[in-house]
Each structure stands twice: as structure tokens, then as C-alpha cells.
Design a protein around this nucleic acid. Sequence first.
DNA 1: ATGTTTACATGAAATATATCAATGTAATTA
DNA 2: TAATTACATTGATATATTTCATGTAAACAT
Lengths: 295, 295
Amino acid sequence: MKLLRNNLLEAFCAVVECGGFSEAQFRLGISQSAISCRIRDLEIALGYRVCERGRSGFQLTERGKIAYEKACEIIRMVEDFDAELLELRGTITGQLRIGIVDTVISLPGFPLVPALQRFFSKENDVNLEIVVASPNDLKEGLITGSLHIALAPFKRKRDELEYIKVCSENHFLYCGREHELFDAGKDEISPEILSNHAVCQRSYDMIVARDAKTPEPKAIVTNMEAAAALILSGKFLGVLPDHYATQWVETGNMRLLEHPNLTWTSEFYVASRKSQSHRQAVEWFIKALLQDGVI
Amino acid sequence: MKLLRNNLLEAFCAVVECGGFSEAQFRLGISQSAISCRIRDLEIALGYRVCERGRSGFQLTERGKIAYEKACEIIRMVEDFDAELLELRGTITGQLRIGIVDTVISLPGFPLVPALQRFFSKENDVNLEIVVASPNDLKEGLITGSLHIALAPFKRKRDELEYIKVCSENHFLYCGREHELFDAGKDEISPEILSNHAVCQRSYDMIVARDAKTPEPKAIVTNMEAAAALILSGKFLGVLPDHYATQWVETGNMRLLEHPNLTWTSEFYVASRKSQSHRQAVEWFIKALLQDGVI
DNA sequence: ATGTTTACATGAAATATATCAATGTAATTA
DNA sequence: TAATTACATTGATATATTTCATGTAAACAT
């Protein structure tokens, strides 16, 4: 309990994230000297220095790095705890952290937008945070507690998480207008021919694409927009969800290439921790997500 | 963070466990009025009453009960967190909560006593708590974090826990001197005859004994000493570990009865959570337990 | 070198917070 | 009805925290 008194840890985390005491003033709403005191007190309690600072720059010590990671974790846990107890009042409160993958707004049946409408049309006290990351990072987030809910195509299921299928997404191979295959005849396109062209891949789809027998991907992206840019450049083939590619196909800037192994459907799930769904805000939001009907 | 300020939760938990404000004074080392203030502040922060109190008696409200459970949990988590960060100093610190089943001190190869000697012969700042409970409660404790280490015969293994075998214990059926079978000849004892006599069982051994074809147990105990008392009364047969029964067998107060299904060996394990072994105190103690060699 | 700026530390005063001691109140009990 | 118990309240006191003003040291510009 020693370390959580007087928001010592909040000050520490703010200082780390702001890269110094002076910047953290505004975020914490207290003076620089107060921050100085808090960090000093924290270091006295801990018995070691957490950061080097001064005109020579701000830097966490080795122990400070570990302390910072753990401090973030405990702060999140305490926030969730606060929210749980406050929700016993009847009003739903607290932080609600939701994770999604990128480029899903146009995905038919993706329930986020209607869920947000439903959730916030009821009076509540919830503070929402939406994070965009890869399915793997989202899974990590759920397990560590930095996320309450994630919406993404999860391939391997984890025991400690709960998954509910909500919709699916079709992926096809595309080339850009500038690409030499753009005007090729149907008979000029075969897996063999395609395998001679550079392909860009999303890092988290690489497992799926392993059996596609394409050359080593020349470019790896972690984001759909980046993939689209590479494809539109005409120098790469790439797999995109159809609902996303359609905007360029319709304007004549992309063309779908049929390929048996670079075409797939991924299932989207609402995922959350099995244990920690006690938070009303979490349960309500999941309910709001599923209201259109589970597939 | 609102709820953890000024030890509001410690005060609350102390009050609950002491059954009132006045008693909690001594435990918390603050005056009754200070406690009153803290509970008031907690209730203001929460927005609801956590307990009814006054001359008419102390009682948690429904919400108060939930709040109390969660408060205990978060306090333990914060304690563990404190200990983790303090251990980065180099000195091992914090609470170390160990669970065992009863009547194990005489079990040959049970590593607790030598481990305690080894652990405390090194200078440290650890606060030890030893809990005696059933294997099932110990398992629960490990999972919820109320225990760091447990030493017990675990039958089903849980994924989130780590088990290391340390020794084993032999169980046999016994009767007391006053029992009618005490002086019976060897040929007068068979499973059929035995099945006409009342047996007492430890509640957590009932799964093992299911195939023993004994009549429904007339008495259930959750503690070995209680089982011994029932056996010594002469009114019950019962299963005991041999190392424990031996004291009465040698003094002629108990007799071992051979029975194929009421004789078994249970394996003792050191169990701990896979994830949370980051605490040095926990790791060191496990090391101290295993120093005699793993079986 | 020298002065200036930046980033933090420090000390005294001011403010906020928590605690205590004393007393008040309401429900029991004698 | 008085005494007792268990807690609430109050105002004084103690403690803790923050601010403001100022100090210090490193980096940078001149």
C-alpha cells in the first residue's frame, strides 16, 4: 500500500509518458515541484532511483523500466476495481477499453458503430478508449487486462478468453492499375504466373499465407492502408478485404486477381476475458455488440 | 484510485473482520473517530452504504459484502505489487502466504520444516503466513492469489498452476481399540465384512473412496485429527496416513485393517501460479522446498 | 569563457487533509 | 429511568502536500 499513497505511481507514469517533470505538470495539473516531491517520495519508498533527470535529459533506470511496467498494470487493475465497486451504485462507470483491427468500419455486419449508438444512447458515466492493433496485440491486451473487449479475426482461441462470432470478412488478391497484370487476359493469370510477382502481406496474416506458395513477401505491412498504398503503387500484389478494396476496384484503380490460396474468409469475434466480465460496462457493451444477432 | 486513498479499504476490511469500529481501533492503531471518518469517506466515494452499525449491531449491506470481497482481493494484489517493486532493491520482502493440508509434519520427506530453516537462515524481510486448508481450498487460494505456494496432494491439475512432486503419503484403513474388529482374526476381515461397518471420511478424499464399495459414510470430517478422534472412539473405521496413525498403532490404540480399495498413495506437490512466480520471495521459497531433491 | 536557458531540487509558507479528544445521540440493557 | 454501548460529530491539533520563490547544474549559444 506504501506505493499507492498520494498518487505516487500516477505521477511516475505521467512523468515517464511525458518524458520529464515539466511536461507532466499539465497532464497532472500540479506544479513541477509537487511532481519532484512525489518522485522523491516514491524513490524513498522503493529504495532505488527510478529515473535519471535534469538538463541532461530524462531516462528511466533499469529498475525504473520494470517499475513503470508494473505500475501501469496495477493502476489499470485499481481503475477496474474502482469501476466495479462504483457500478454497484447502479450507474455504470469507469474506463472501457476496446480494441479493434484496422479498416473494419466498412465491413458489412461489423457491430461497432451500432453498438456505440446503443451503448451511449443510455445515460452512463463510461470513459471509452478505442485502440487499433493487430489481433495478436489485442489478444495480449485482453489477457493482461489493458483491454476489456476486442473485435478482430482471432485464429487460435485462448482458454482464458471468451469468443463470440459476429461477422466474417472475405479477402482477395488485388493489383493496382499500374501493375503489368492489370490489363492481362483471364488466361494470362494463374497461380504460377502470379507467383512471379512481388506480394505484400500483413504481418499477422503470414500464417494464413504460408501455404500460398508465393515468393517470400517483398514487403510486410502491419496496417491495411499501407497495404493498399503498396498495391496502388503498381509494384506489388496484395490481399485486401473485399469491402475495403471495392472503393478502388469501382474507380478502376484496382483489379481482383483470382488465386486459390490467396483468397480466404476470416471470422470476426467479440473476445473478452472469461473471469473479468463482472464489470457491468463490459457486459453491457458486449450485449450492445451482439444485439443485431450472433451469427 | 479514489477508493484506495488514505487506506479507506484497509479500514473497511479491518472493521468487517473485527465486527465493528470500536474493535478495529486496536488493529488499525487509530481512534474510533478516525475509523468513522474513513468509513464515511468510503461511503461517500462509493455512493452507497457498506454497513449498518450502531448499538443495534454491525452488519454488512448486500453491496457491502461484495465490496468487502473485492476490497480484500485488491489489497492482496496491491501488497504483492508493492513486494514485487520493493524486491528490485535486492532484499526480498513482502507477505508470503503458504498453504498446507493438516497433519503433514510427520510425513517423511515433507519439505516444509527444512525449507523454513533454509529460507529464514538467510537475512530477509519476509512476513510469512501459513494457512491450513483442504486441497481444494488451497487450489482456489492459488488461483485467486490469496496464496503464493501450496503443499498438498493435488489430484486434478489446473492449467494455470505449476506442480512439482515432492513426496508421497500412504493411506490405510484403521480401527480403534474399542472397535469390535480390533481383536478379530485375519480371516474375519474381508471387504464384505468391513463394508458392514461405519466409516468416516475426509470430505476431500471422497472422490478416491467412491469405488471402495463402503456404505455411505456416516461421518465426514475435514480434518485428520477429527478423523482420528472418530476412529479412536471405536465407533468408526477410517482412513489415515500411516505416518500419522503410527503413534496410536504403536501404543495399541489402533489397528490397521487391510482393504484393497481403502488403501492408497497420494502424491504431494508444491503448487504455485505459473504467471505470478515473479516474486523473488516465492521463487526462493520454492527453491528452498525443493533443495532436498525433487522426486 | 561567459551568459542564458532548461530541467529539476529545495525550503518556507500556505493550504489541505487526517486525526484526536471530547462530547452528542440513539438503541439496548439493567 | 439510568447506565451502557457503539457510533457520529465537532473543533482543535497534527500531519501531509502543494505552491511559490529561489537555487543549482548541465547544455547551449555567443
